[in-house]
Simulated scan of single mutants.
Amino acid sequence: MHLLYLDEAGSAGDAGQTHFVLAGVSLFERQGYWIANELDKLVSSINPADPAPLELHGSPMFGGKKIWRQYPKEQRWHIIKEALEILARSHHSNRIFACVVNKQNISPADPVNYSFEQVASRFDQYLSRLHKNNDSQRGIIIFDKSTYESTIQGLATDFRTIGHRWGVLRNLSEVPLFLDSKASRLIQLSDLIAYSLFRKYEFGDDQFYSIIQDRFDEVGGIKHGLCERI
């Protein structure tokens, strides 16, 4: 079983932002525990007495907001980079899937609909590729709870029954699941991935993206795991 943890960065409805990102990481089921444990150790390194309330969340960590206000910028940014390094050092089967859109360039299409169709179909194609290589695996997509929950659930059901523009999702064992990010370090990691892409495309800042740029699903030099409409 491969679990694709996804989160968004940027707001689909904010006219002040150019880009919207949907991104995250696909983990083989046995890899999830190791990565979550490493992320727990990382957070414990700065608050060993009570690490649980410290949620790895890109925007507050970058800007020093909410609970992260008490930590200096250098420490906050270091933690973002170290969390991404955990993924960068992990097993080669752990792969990033992402869609980055310039909202104006895909108008009148909805950024959430467009991005989810791209990411879900690319994840499904990845699982089909594994099957052709005698490694049959099913997949589940896991989201942070958000305002897009009802939209995503409806799209996923349609993609599995009616189909999307490239076919029907064949390798997902269930409709997407939604978790509270506070309870999942892996959802938090997907937030950092999405925020890293948002910083790169919205602000030209690749200090975080550069750490994970080689972890997209890729075959023959083609990044199948990255959709760009910019």
Rank of each mutant, 00 (worst) to 15 (best):
M1W: 02
A9F: 01
A9S: 15
D14A: 12
A15D: 11
Q17S: 10
Q17D: 11
L22D: 13
L22F: 14
G24D: 06
S26H: 06
Q31I: 06
Y33D: 09
Y33M: 07
W34K: 11
I35R: 01
I35L: 15
I35S: 01
N37T: 12
V43G: 08
S44G: 15
P48Q: 10
A49D: 14
A49C: 02
L54D: 12
H57G: 04
G58Q: 01
G58R: 01
F62Q: 08
G64Q: 11
K73G: 05
Q75C: 04
H78I: 05
H78Y: 14
H78T: 15
K81F: 05
E82F: 04
H92K: 13
I96C: 11
V101D: 05
K103H: 04
Q104C: 04
S107P: 02
A109C: 08
Y114H: 13
Q118F: 05
S121M: 08
Q125V: 04
K132E: 15
N133M: 14
D135K: 14
D135A: 15
Q137P: 00
I142Y: 04
D144C: 08
T147C: 03
Y148D: 10
E149V: 09
S150R: 13
L155S: 04
F159P: 01
R160G: 03
W166N: 10
G167Y: 01
P176S: 04
P176Q: 14
F178Y: 13
K182T: 05
L186P: 05
L192Y: 08
A194K: 03
A194C: 02
Y195K: 03
S196M: 06
R199W: 04
Y201D: 03
E202L: 09
Y209K: 01
S210R: 10
S210K: 10
D214A: 09
R215N: 06
V219L: 15
V219I: 15
H224G: 13
G225A: 07
C227N: 03
E228T: 10
